Simulated scan of single mutants.
Amino acid sequence: MVNKGGGAGVQVTAYTQTLSDIEARIGNRAKAGQVVGNFNNLFMLRVRETATAELLTRQLPKVEVYATALMSGATDSSDPHGNTAFTSNTQDRISSNSVPLIEPAHVVALPKGQCFALIEGGNLWKVRMPLPAPDPDEAMPKDLQELAGYMRQHYVEAGDWWENQGILGLQDKALPDDLLDDFKQMDSAEEAEA
């Protein structure tokens, strides 16, 4: 489905905690790699399995990192009667090393609510998602049981709402008087046209 679905307009969004989950479900490492290879975009939150983190890090290029080294030295003069007792020199040396852009350890250490996204043909993004505020909301129930109890107490059968026959005895009372008058005028105008 992932391989052929794109041409048919099918978009597949899949979530797994580890790469091993896909392999365990399919039963074959090569086929699991084939499934993973057919996805275009990759969003990776914090993972615990290094092999899963390497799914992202192996696709990234290496980058050049420059380092500077300060070299200094001094040399004593061999002429005891000369004007200089010693000579010194100082040099700045710049060297470059090729290192991976992201290591698997960076993915394993991601904070909550952050991820790396490899999208649009290999563009790497660092994403920070907003998290819900920890402040309690007075309007929200304390737990799902309280919410379900409130819904059971206030449940009303909607009936044929599209024909305005839903809530018995409340059809006319549910609307304010000015809206109710407008509704009756529209209804009578439609009957006159028919």
Rank of each mutant, 00 (worst) to 15 (best):
A51T: 12
A51K: 15
A53M: 05
L55E: 06
L55P: 00
L55A: 05
L56D: 00
T57E: 02
R58P: 00
R58F: 01
L60R: 00
P61A: 01
P61K: 00
K62E: 14
V63C: 03
V65F: 03
T68A: 13
A69Y: 07
A69I: 04
L70T: 10
S72F: 06
S72C: 06
G73Q: 04
G73N: 04
T75V: 10
T75G: 09
D76A: 13
S77D: 09
S77N: 10
S78A: 14
S78P: 07
D79S: 11
P80F: 06
P80H: 05
G82Q: 03
G82V: 02
G82H: 09
T84V: 13
T84C: 10
A85K: 14
S88T: 10
N89Y: 07
Q91M: 09
Q91R: 12
Q91K: 10
D92M: 12
R93T: 09
S98A: 09
S98M: 02
S98L: 09
L101T: 03
L101N: 00
I102Q: 00
I102V: 12
E103T: 04
P104N: 06
P104L: 05
H106I: 02
V107C: 01
V107W: 02
V108A: 15
V108H: 11
P111I: 04
P111G: 12
K112N: 13
K112M: 08
G113N: 04
Q114W: 02
Q114I: 03
C115Q: 00
A117F: 03
G122Q: 03
G122I: 01
L124M: 02
V127N: 03
R128N: 13
M129P: 00
M129Y: 13
M129K: 05
P130E: 10
L131T: 06
L131E: 05
A133V: 10
A133S: 15
A133P: 04
P134V: 05
D135F: 06
D135S: 11
D135V: 05
D137L: 06
A139T: 05
A139K: 08
K142C: 02
D143L: 00
D143A: 00
D143G: 02
D143Y: 01
L144W: 12
Q145T: 08
L147A: 11
G149K: 14
G149Y: 05
Y150A: 15
M151E: 09
H154N: 15
Y155R: 15
Y155H: 15
A158L: 15
W161N: 06
W161P: 02
E163P: 01
E163Q: 14
E163I: 00
N164T: 04
N164W: 10
G166V: 04
G166H: 08
I167T: 09
L168G: 08
L170T: 02
L170S: 09
Q171N: 12
Q171G: 06
K173F: 14
A174H: 10
L175K: 11
D178L: 04
L180V: 03
D181V: 10
D182I: 09
F183G: 05
F183M: 13
F183W: 15
